[in-house]
Simulated scan of single mutants.
Amino acid sequence: MNRLTLKLACLAAALIAASGTARAAEDWPEGAVTFITSGLPGSAPDLMARVFADRLGRRWNQSVVVENVPGAEGTLAVKAFMGADPGTALMLAPSGPSMVAPALRAELPYDPDVDLMPIAALTVDHVAFAVTPGLGAASLDELIAVARSRPGALNWSSAPGAPNLVFRELLRSSGIEMTHVPYKGVGPEMIADLASGVIQIALVPLAPARGLASEDKIRLIAVTNDARAPSFPDVPTVAEAGYPDLAMEGVLGAFGWRGITSERREQLARDFRAAADDPALRQRLEASGQTVRVTGPEGYATYLSNERRRWATAARTLGIAPATN
């Protein structure tokens, strides 16, 4: 074999290998896929996961099922995700287990830098301060005034993670006292208790609250996002209400398994982006209070890193020492 023939043979072999690698990347998934979410049925993470499962199941020509594993501020969902066979599941959930939990727990049953590999940020959830109508508070100023007149008498709750820290910052910065009532997650029980007055204030995503809010059975007084919610345009942002330090956005995203390749993460991000281009998907999520905003692995990882520093600082300001159990 002469030198030219040898070079051509090597080039052909390289092209075949590259083609095989590309096909292998595009062949995923080889079977059914599970989307594990920390949200209760009917919650924002649950709705987001189910809408993407429907679109991507068709794109992949595979069954995609959603598994709800709520509780323990997302830790139970992460443990379920880690227990799945690599390559058979993705975690679609709020970003809290990666960006807030490290500030609240001295030890975690997972490594957020290894076990939760960012694939894509998918949606931004509108998060709202909501009150029971009988409280007589139509704004954050009025809420604080009522709380000051009844120290310790009002009950509050929130979504776990960043919303919980935001509510505690409201208490700290305004010098008011309320009683925290924990729930397993933001679902029908919490929202029903808010409507009936068992709890008087909650900081929750719009998805589970929008129904009763539309019926005036609960009142939304401010959203923590940078912009007003399109579905409730009359509700001001916390910045507009004079409380910019309470601003936060509820970013929900997709995470891959330990050891997932960068090529697979990029491929999956492209798949999620393609699904998000569907106007019907956007319309359904926007009606629930979520805005579709897809980023790739690098952008999502940068966001999580920055937010982890922010919430670690917030926890220290609030005097919250990382729990040891």
Rank of each mutant, 00 (worst) to 15 (best):
F232Y: 06
E240G: 07
A254E: 04
F272Y: 10
R258F: 06
V292I: 13
A301H: 11
D226P: 00
L246N: 07
R270Q: 14
R310K: 15
S262L: 09
A239P: 00
A222L: 07
R210N: 09
P230I: 01
D271T: 07
E298I: 13
E266S: 13
R310S: 09
G259L: 05
L304M: 13
D216E: 15
D216Y: 05
A301D: 14
V238E: 02
G242A: 06
G242I: 05
A241V: 06
R308V: 11
G253Y: 00
A222R: 02
E298C: 08
K217M: 13
R228S: 03
E240T: 03
V238S: 02
A269C: 10
F255K: 02
R282M: 10
R310T: 14
D216I: 00
E240Y: 03
G242S: 04
P297A: 10
A254C: 10
G250W: 10
T224R: 03
G250V: 09
R265Q: 12
L304N: 13
D277F: 06
R309Y: 08
F255L: 03
A247H: 12
M248I: 06
E249R: 08
A301S: 15
L212G: 08
Q290H: 11
V223C: 07
E263I: 09
A241F: 02
G253C: 08
A276L: 07
A275P: 06
M248F: 15
S231C: 04
N306S: 14
A222H: 01
A229W: 00
A229R: 00
R228N: 03
R282Y: 08
T302W: 10
G259T: 11
G256S: 09
L246D: 10
N306E: 15
T237C: 02
R228K: 09
R270K: 11
T295S: 15
A301K: 12
A229N: 10
P230H: 00
E266G: 04
E286P: 04
A247P: 00
E286A: 14
A275N: 08
A247I: 01
L220V: 05
R293H: 13
A301W: 11
G211P: 00
A275M: 08
V251D: 01
R210K: 14
A312L: 10
A275I: 10
R265V: 01
V251H: 07
A213M: 06
V294C: 14
Q290I: 06
P297G: 12
D226V: 00
V251G: 03
